[in-house]
Design a protein around this nucleic acid. Sequence first.
DNA 1: TTTATTTGACCAAC
DNA 2: GTTGGTCAAATAAA
Length: 270
Amino acid sequence: MEDFLGENPHNRLIKELIEGKSFTVQLQTLLKQPNESVLAEELIRKIWGSFTQAITVLNSLGNSDNSLTQGQIEEVDQPNSGSEMKKKKEKQDRRGCYKRRKTSGSWMRESETMNDGCAWRKYGQKKILNSKYPRCYYRCTHKYDQECRATKQVQIIQENPIIMYHTTYFGNHTCNSTKIPKHTYNNHSMVKHSDSTVLKEEEEEFKGQSDNASSIVDSNLWQDFMPSSPSAHDSTLAANYNYSYYEEIISSHDMEDLAKFGEIEAIEFC
DNA sequence: TTTATTTGACCAAC
DNA sequence: GTTGGTCAAATAAA
């Protein structure tokens, strides 16, 4: 593993996250006392610094496909500075102006129902070459009001004896209305498949729930570091941050390393 | 009137 | 040149 400014990046990352958590606990204590706003502001600044450093370290780890640009980092760094402006950016005619999506960051499920508990809006349908059934394109209902970029493609793969749908999900829900499902990594409900992730669901458990599977790890990880319940922005930040990297961290011996630092209690996935 | 769906056009990727 | 993903006008439904 490459050094990060003379320090092992892995250790540096752990150190920054632990510091961030420690500052959060201090802040929590401080907020219970009156007239400590100056100290609180200082702690907030330190927490911000820790997470910024952590993001920088993660971003430096060489996964170029998923590395954030500095602009993206700054975007999440300054929650009130640019995003509001972007929300108001005027619509323009972007018909046909798109990049064909890559399969990385996607995951699939096959089920007897299209219903997954999320609010989707259909925006297109296409006949697919060598396919008996058309492919339907859906985006999150909150694409514009909450800038949720989740999309899915649904295609019937068989009609007999029952209709089976093959659904491919792209992106994570960042909208507030999304419910976090009870899918977990440790029950092996998700199977990594090449660059994408195949979601082998337990259908009964799944019905009526969201299937924003990748956000599970993200949201719980961040919950662990957050003193209060995370906002949509928090999960966005984590979700945008390349969950596959978290998966890599969490599923490996690195968890032992996390524990070694002693400050982090068990990280639970639902 | 508002919201959702359908469908043809557009165009980048292959 | 073909294919597939997205847009937006037209249309339907609530």
